[in-house]
Write a protein that binds this DNA or RNA. Sequence first.
RNA 1: GGUGGGAUGGCAGAGCGGUUGAAUGCACCAGUCUUGAAAACUGGCAUAGGUUAAUAGCCUAUCUAGGGUUCGAAUCCCUAUCCCACCGCCA
Length: 426
Amino acid sequence: MIDPKLLRADLPNIAERLKLKHYDLDCNHFSMLDAQRKDQQIEAEALQQERNSYAKSMGKLIAQAKANGDDIEPLKQRGEQLKNDSSTADAKLAEVQTAIDELLQGIPNLPHASVPAGNDESDNIEIRQWGSPLELSFGAKDHVDLGAKLNGLDFDTASKITGSRFSYMRGGLASLQRALTQFMLNTHIQDHGYEEVYVPYIVNRDSLFGTGQLPKFEEDLFKLEDERGFYLIPTAEVPVTNIYRNEIVDNLPIKFVAHTPCFRSEAGSYGRDTRGLIRQHQFEKVEMVQFVHPNDSWDVLEELVGHAEAILQKLKLPYRTVALCGGDLGFSAAKTYDIEVWLPSQKKYREISSCSNFTDFQARRMKARFRNGQGKPEFLHTLNGSGLAVGRTLLAVMENYQQEDGSIEIPNVLQPLMNGATHIRV
RNA sequence: GGUGGGAUGGCAGAGCGGUUGAAUGCACCAGUCUUGAAAACUGGCAUAGGUUAAUAGCCUAUCUAGGGUUCGAAUCCCUAUCCCACCGCCA
């Protein structure tokens, strides 16, 4: 959520900045609502005060009336009148406040000054490249063909078990995915200073609101048939970031890493990436989440991207890093870097990680705070990044390490985690 | 799934319809004393929102959350959540 005070103080400027994200803020509507709110609130609080002070004096008034032998009823009626007046004013205020809250909750985070303008991913700016795109002397197969030949990746069986956009792996490929997960976790824990956490894979509405998936993006989620309003997590970001919802923490930064499955309904992506592992309803991801002091979040974002890139470098997978343009930026993010890995079969870079600074946007929704120098609670900043999407990393390894005979060489750093095996063979 | 007991400020813990935003203790901050520290003493010490130039005053809300009863609720009623105990079931 954007700071409502900021919005009041600097409305035209904020509206201008939000245009970069293609969000059209109706300034007049907001101003009108806020003016209404102000009038209503002053009135409601004044009536409340009158009601309170009358109720407080009631004890004495009753004693006095009784001493004089007077009827107490008129005193009570006066109280009732005050109650009714203040209730009416409260109801009006609540109505205006709800309208404002709905408007406020629908406003995306402000993009950072460095975010480039643009409409979609084609306008993203390449920041750097690492490694050179793989050139094969033989025709590059894609991971689906490679996996089928290895008898290790089977989408037909998965669709029998469940449906489309699920996968079934066996043997070396299943182990390789597990080795990748383990490798990523170990690297982040040992080299990058993260603490591993284990979290629920089912979350409630409050958590999804906190990180910004709700109320606007419900169609992307799998909702459970359960009156408690539970959802499968679309990313570990949700449970991990919400660890500090409604908390005041005292030691920043806090760096967590978690491995979880992720569940996405992929509504609205019919026909996109239907082949293979790229876009699945269920996939594994290692996620880094940081809670930091507001002064540090921009430096930490650069560091976080570096942590994700380190995995690709150790795996010797060529990639490039891009800064998302305003139109491609997510709802809650102030700035996002995507890391895209080279896929020889597609001769394209494809997203494998997304690292974002959410500034205080999630923290305000979650009421996640720390004590500043004066000991006052202040909203902290949250960041997260995939480190990495495991399924996509698996397919990138398969394609970039494929041999002419269809076997897959196992990257050096993974071999110890694969019982020393060097190849996955037919 | 069943039964019973809980949830109060940073922590512990009173209060159980009427000047209670909330006793007391601990912790914390400032001061007095001291060469310094400790002890003792004095004072301070919640959060959010509004109003405001103001992190000054003033107002409102908040005793897990949401409803209700009442002129008045931390206190009474209902619901939810979580915790604890026991029974049943279970990886």
